[in-house]
Design a binder for these strands. Structure first.
Lengths: 143, 143
DNA sequence: CTTATCAATGAAAGTGATTTCCGATAGCAA
DNA sequence: TTGCTATCGGAAATCACTTTCATTGATAAG
């Protein structure tokens, strides 16, 4: 699965006539080997720990490439930090976000998706994306 | 309904020991007499047209107070602009956002709300808010 | 294995939205 | 009226990104 994403990204790089660089591989490894919802800051600091002179701008630029290549997706939970999550083909999910500790749980619900489609249609909208987030306190923080 | 919100805000001001000022009243009137999803910029410019030396900072500060008082709610549609919408007691709705023209349509769906509650519960989360936005092309733009 | 080309990089400067700072002003209680 | 202090406006600061630019390095041609 990690290999598949690496492959996808390398194919994308080749298809676009871009260059395969050490930094891009480094950032890709960092992204793939970490938690599914990382902020750019987090990834940057993690990388920086091992490779002190990697640039902030490079991380931003590369994450944007990940989005374009389809292996990552940008998400925002309203805390002013952009996060990136892994994209798994044919899979869609929404998020439960803990407002105390920041934990994120993914869930998928077929019934909600269907209702959303019906609502959009009834208003004449042609929907291409949607966002559903439930904000609350996670089981751990409730104690 | 506008009167009710003015009352609510004045009560809030009094309860918190804050002061009732001309600017706050001005901004409140501007907010209440306009469209339901305004950006801070829009409100600021509209106010500025009538009262040239009202400060940007004051508008920000005051809108935050509106949120705290419960008469307004901050929303973000991912275009980098924070918007504020009116809060009507006991009413909840979600949004259909046109990604071409920016039009926003509100909708409410009881069934979705129930499903959300069930999902949150099954994961042990205590949910206090949620956000559901459908992004697409509105009927007008589809032509 | 060179060498030329031009994308990619890192550091720093620039943006745009929002926030803070600060001296002046104005509610409001005494 | 007076005094206290919240609030104000304008400017500077901050925050999360984005762009710029001189240098570096990947790649392809020779």
């Amino acid at each position: 699965m990690k290999q598949a994403k690496k492959q996808l990204f390398h194919d994308f790089i080749a298809r676009k006539g871009l260059k395969s660089t050490r930094q891009r591989d480094l950032i890709l490894d960092g992204f793939l080997s970490n938690d599914r919802h990382m902020s750019i800051e987090e990834l940057y600091l993690a990388l920086r720990a091992k490779h002190p002179n990697i640039g902030y701008a490079t991380v931003y630029r590369t994450l944007k490439l990940f989005s374009e290549s389809g292996i990552a997706r940008e998400i925002q939970f309203g805390d002013g930090q952009t996060r990136f999550e892994h994209v798994d083909e044919g899979e869609h999910h929404d998020h439960l976000v803990c407002t105390r500790c920041g934990a994120v749980k993914e869930f998928a619900n077929e019934a909600i998706e269907k209702l959303q489609a019906a609502i959009a249609e009834s208003h004449g909208y042609l929907v291409h994306t949607h966002k559903l987030e439930l904000y609350g306190i996670c089981p751990k923080c409730r104690k």
